[in-house]
Amino acid sequence: MASAAPSTGRYRLAIASRSLAAILGSYGLAVLTSLAITAGLANVLGARDAVTLGRMIGFLVYAGAAIWAFGCRSAESAWTGIGLASALAALGLLAAGGAA
């Protein structure tokens, strides 16, 4: 993380930002992913299986995103990555919602 820790304040801010990205950002991404999978696959798998699969993958996405938020280069890239992935999931959800 903060390589030379320019100042404790900035370091702490970065940690707080990453934590928010990991806790809330990842949750948003997990919710959107599970909804996109449910909406996209409900016609293929049936409603119950689509919901289950969406949730199964949702939890994995949450864990992966939370870890990535701390493993990536900076707090900014944590938010950018999670934001982009969320936007993708939201697009998928919209597309599936339009198709259904």
Partner: peptide, 13 residues
């Protein structure tokens, strides 16, 4: 799951 990620169920059912 139905507590932690509730909305998929609402949407499908």
């Amino acid at each position: 799951a139905s507590t932690l990620l509730p909305w998929a169920g609402d949407m499908a059912f």
